[in-house]
């Protein structure tokens, strides 16, 4: 059936959300600036890091950010630099920070997106299963699974998965992004990379499977008691259709929301999991930068990741509006 409202209205809604996001982005930049200004010692250290840098560069940074100027001017200069995309230079990596982070972002996104997909599918299936027979063995099992997911730290789960599947059973590689020794090409390379991704993905998705399971179960139980479900049964719809087309459609809304709003936790989780598995993404970069005291990289990651979270939240709002015709836009 055709939608009553055009894409124009949706565009306007998205634009409005976008405008709403601007102060948040500015807020994030201000927090970054505050971190730089409040850090103990010479603020130039926060901008350059503790990796040895040539003195000319140090002086240039001092001048660029006006470190001898009053705070408001420093803030404006900082904002200006960030908006121009200048996040500083990483001497430990011999690369501009923005370039470095964006380079690593791809692998992190691959991990996060496959995690979200996996967690959503498994969580929804488990949640539906549990909701079909509340208080049954299956339901109890799903509840136990959810509790474990909420409580087990993903980095520890990662270590345990390595212990069992890599060290113990030898089925999967213990870490890395691809096999270094063998030089796979074509499909073999894809399979090789996929094998490296399985364990990190499992470790990272456990918590979100648990969240999705619990949420699916709860919203489905509520929805399936509603009048319109009764009515669709009275129209002769099969239980399967009632569940998938009516029940889950309604349950999808909270699921979309929770995935969107938990994105910043997935970010943290992936940093930890990447560290466990030596997955060369942003998280691993963060871990390494702590040891090299490469502050501009850390600040750059905070900035980019925060903006990514803001964008994901924005997309969540739009997706919600697409899914629920009652949202006015």
């Amino acid at each position: 059936m055709s939608r009553a409202r055009g894409s124009k209205a949706l565009g306007a809604f998205a634009l409005e959300r976008l405008l709403n996001a601007v102060p948040l982005v500015i807020g994030v930049i201000v927090i970054n600036f505050l971190l730089v200004s409040l850090a103990p010692g010479d603020p130039v250290t926060a901008l350059i890091g503790e990796f040895p840098a040539p003195p000319e560069y140090v002086e240039r940074v001092r001048a660029q950010y006006g470190l001898d100027r009053p705070v408001p001017e420093r803030m404006v200069r900082y904002l200006g630099s960030v908006v121009r995309g200048d996040l500083g230079f990483s001497f430990a990596n011999r690369q501009p920070v923005l370039e470095l982070v964006l380079e690593r972002l791809g692998r992190t996104l691959v991990l996060m997106i496959s995690t979200v997909v996996l967690a959503t599918i498994v969580g929804v299936v488990l949640g539906v299963w549990a909701a079909r027979r509340p208080h049954s063995g299956v339901d109890r099992g799903a509840t136990g699974f959810a509790l474990a997911g909420y409580s087990i730290p993903e980095f520890w789960l990662g270590q345990i998965l390595i212990l069992v599947f890599a060290v113990g059973l030898g089925w999967l590689p213990a870490g890395g992004f691809r096999s270094i020794r063998a030089d796979y090409v074509g499909w073999a390379a894809v399979v090789d990379q996929a094998r490296h991704m399985i364990l990190p993905m499992l470790a990272l998705s456990f918590r979100y499977m648990a969240i999705t399971t619990r949420l699916t179960r709860a919203s489905l139980l509520e929805v399936m008691n509603s009048d319109y479900i009764l009515a669709s049964r009275a129209r002769g719809l099969s239980e399967r259709r009632v569940l998938w087309e009516h029940g889950l459609r309604a349950a999808a809304l909270p699921i979309i929301t929770v995935i969107g709003y938990n994105f910043s936790f997935i970010v943290a989780g992936s940093a930890l999991v990447e560290t466990v598995f030596g997955w060369p993404g942003v998280g691993r970069l963060m871990y390494d930068s702590i040891f090299t005291r490469d502050y501009p990289v850390l600040l750059g990651i905070l900035l980019i990741v925060s903006i990514a979270v803001i964008l994901v939240n924005l997309l969540t709002d739009v997706a919600y509006a697409l899914f629920d015709p009652r949202v006015r836009y």
Binding site: S226, Y228, A231, S232, H246, R249, D324, P325
Partner: peptide
Amino acid sequence: SYLNPVLS
């Protein structure tokens, strides 16, 4: 209340 709010 007997019609699903998210389906046309």
